[in-house]
Design a protein around this nucleic acid. Structure first.
Lengths: 203, 203
DNA sequence: TGTACATCAGTGAACGCGCGTTCACTGATGTAC
DNA sequence: TGTACATCAGTGAACGCGCGTTCACTGATGTAC
């Protein structure tokens, strides 16, 4: 039986990657509550105590998950910047990419809203805040470029706009969760984008 | 010592109210994670096992919290309907009321985003979904009235508008949490409202 | 108005469960000679 | 090329902790007579 055999021995670096990916995948499918050391170990194919060969503890694993998380979010910004020069087009593409990211990787909202993050430690909360702030600043930066180019109304506060931008998909994501995937976030995002564009576009 | 004396005996109805209020207050201050039977009992001034004289179990307590929650949210809608006839004015007032509700009662977002709700049972998820759906429908109804009166652009989908409306404060609430209350949600809501109004107002 | 009894809220000890973590061990891998 | 040894990933048993829940009891409250 597979289950009674000792797992293959792999170097720490490889295992760390596997464990982080496994953890992220578990958060996506079972939420932060389902993220136990045992569950991660099972998915990687080792015994729970073996996790401690590669991480100091569960907190350390969570930090690794955060790294993956940040990488995925920021990757979208970079990609969009490479795809087009037009600020409004960039925002629209970023919106649709984000929706896809949420749909393919449910972990994102689960992490953001989890109380493990909000209460467990000040450091972790600060870390998550940093990720979100960086993302907001990237959005605000695109807005500013749009204002400079004359595409976006000049008297709007870029930071406010960036928060409203996030608001275009965040409530929809919650609804998607509550309906068990029955709500069409993509469709909503497209409609919401038109409303948003109408609000910020210079005419 | 107070702590070594037996608590006063009160009838179940009174205790149920006290327990529900205590639970809501604990969620507000310590999140869903802090909501333990022991914590609720301590706040009410009885022993943990005494909770079971008035509720079947923790799940039952959570249901009572949901009732309070629904009452508070829907109360805002009713209040706003009584304050003014103008649809846009109603929406603006509803936004500001909601922001205040979140600030005074942090429990609201904590409940909405908690995994206890999203995973624990299908029934509870359906219940929360019902509350949010009802709220969204009330907002959509106000939008429809605005369209009929010629104040709101007629070609907009009321449901989409209601979700974007929620998006005006939801991301701000998250940021408020992450900064430990350092982010000015009220100020953001006022600015976001102007952007929103510009998007939906008929001209 | 006074007494006997039923009702039921409050108590504290105890249990079971899940979970993160520790630790002595095993045995495969790769390096030194 | 072959052998001895150090390194270190994987194992499984065990522990401690928090938490929801049960249960036999206590004793105050209010009703029946």
């Amino acid at each position: 039986m597979e289950s009674s055999m000792a797992a293959e021995k792999l170097d720490t670096e490889t295992r760390q990657e596997q464990i982080a990916e496994a953890a992220l995948s578990i958060v996506a499918s079972h939420g932060m509550k389902g993220l136990s050391v045992a569950a991660v170990a099972r998915r990687v194919g080792i015994v729970p105590s073996a996790i401690y060969r590669h991480f100091h503890g569960k907190d350390d694993v969570l930090d690794a998950v955060f790294d993956l998380f940040r990488t995925k979010i920021m990757g979208n910004v970079t990609a969009v910047r490479g795809e087009t020069q037009d600020p409004l087009e960039r925002l629209q593409r970023l919106l649709m990419r984000h929706v896809r990211l949420i749909r393919e990787n449910e972990a994102l909202p689960r992490i953001i809203f989890s109380e493990e993050v909000h209460y467990q430690s000040v450091a972790r909360r600060a870390r998550l805040h940093g990720i979100i702030r960086d993302f907001l600043q990237e959005v605000a930066q695109i807005v500013r470029e749009g204002q400079r180019a004359g595409n976006v109304k000049a008297n709007l506060d870029p930071k406010t706009v960036s928060l409203v931008f996030i608001g275009l998909f965040q409530p929809a994501a919650v609804l998607w969760h509550l309906t068990g995937g029955g709500f069409d976030v993509t469709r909503h995002a497209r409609k919401a984008w038109k409303i948003f564009r109408r609000a910020i576009e210079a005419r």
